[in-house]
């Protein structure tokens, strides 16, 4: 078996008496989409926050490409190849679509301290940004103000910014959030092609998308992974049905 790109073991975090992450073990192997599902309040968002460095765990380790990143801040993890997308689009709304993509490209170069040369005259940055926009189908809207994009297009731009980082792993927090049926299908098709670039840890509520995309699914309930395995096994798992899927019929 190949070495996992992202390897989480024994991750534990509690707020007072509330255990939000209860010795979580998770891994992400090359080429796969690993979905994390669970009911509201299961601790999915705090899990992502710990993986990406916004929140420090009480115990456990997070390894990225074999390197222990548990103590590293968000931006160091990003530089090591972790690309996160946000549940609520985190984009510079006053800027153009291209500028948002350029920001990611700039992060990937690690050299933003040039104060005088116009950013748009840097051909490498532009190419990276435009390639990513092209990939998600937003190249024609590159010059638009981000605030003028539709909700679905902003979700696509979120993914494009992550793409510009040329990451080793994606961590996506509900990329389908708020998308209609058509938008959801487009996003599903996009993510399906992305796994070959880098594996995706996908936290998602949309079960159609999860079962269409995931190679493995882990089910998080009250901070604990109660089941983990291929989609068919998860669908058949009695505990999962009771805790979660059963609710939705």
């Amino acid at each position: 078996m190949t070495e996992p790109v992202l390897d989480i073991s024994g991750l534990t975090k509690s707020f007072g008496a509330l255990v939000v992450s209860d010795s979580i073990d998770l891994s992400l192997r090359p080429g796969e989409i690993h979905a994390v599902i669970g009911p509201n309040g299961a601790g999915k968002t705090t899990l992502i926050a710990q993986i990406c460095g916004a929140l420090a765990p009480d115990a456990g380790t997070i390894r990225l490409r074999g390197q222990d990143v548990t103590a590293l801040p968000t931006r160091a993890r990003a530089r090591l190849g972790l690309a996160r997308t946000f549940q609520i689009s985190a984009l510079a709304m006053e800027d153009t679509v291209l500028q948002n993509a350029l920001l990611g490209a700039l992060g990937a170069t690690g050299n933003p301290w040039r104060l005088f040369r116009p950013v748009l005259s840097d051909r490498d940055l532009r190419q990276t940004a435009e390639a990513a926009l092209d990939r998600v189908g937003l190249l024609e809207k590159a010059a638009m103000r981000t605030a003028d994009l539709s909700h679905g297009e902003r979700r696509q731009l979120e993914v494009a910014v992550a793409l510009t980082l040329r990451p080793a792993a994606f961590v996506m927090d509900e990329p389908m959030a708020g998308l209609g049926a058509e938008g959801g299908q487009k996003m599903t098709a996009l993510l399906d092609t992305l796994r070959h670039e880098a594996p995706i840890l996908l936290v998602e509520h949309d079960m159609d998308a999860v079962f269409a995309l995931a190679d493995r699914i882990s089910v998080l309930v009250y901070g604990k992974i109660i089941a983990s395995g291929p989609p068919d096994a998860i669908r058949a798992d009695a505990a999962v049905r009771e805790a979660y899927l059963g609710d939705e019929g």
């Binding site: 801040p73 931006r75 985190a90 800027d95 948002n100 700039l106 933003p112 301290w113 910014v161």
Partner: peptide, 22 residues
Amino acid sequence: SPFGLMLNATRQVPHRVETVGL
């Protein structure tokens, strides 16, 4: 400049800037 782009984004969405490694 690239620096201005980073600053502009920091003003609007600081957490985004951190997540792209800046």
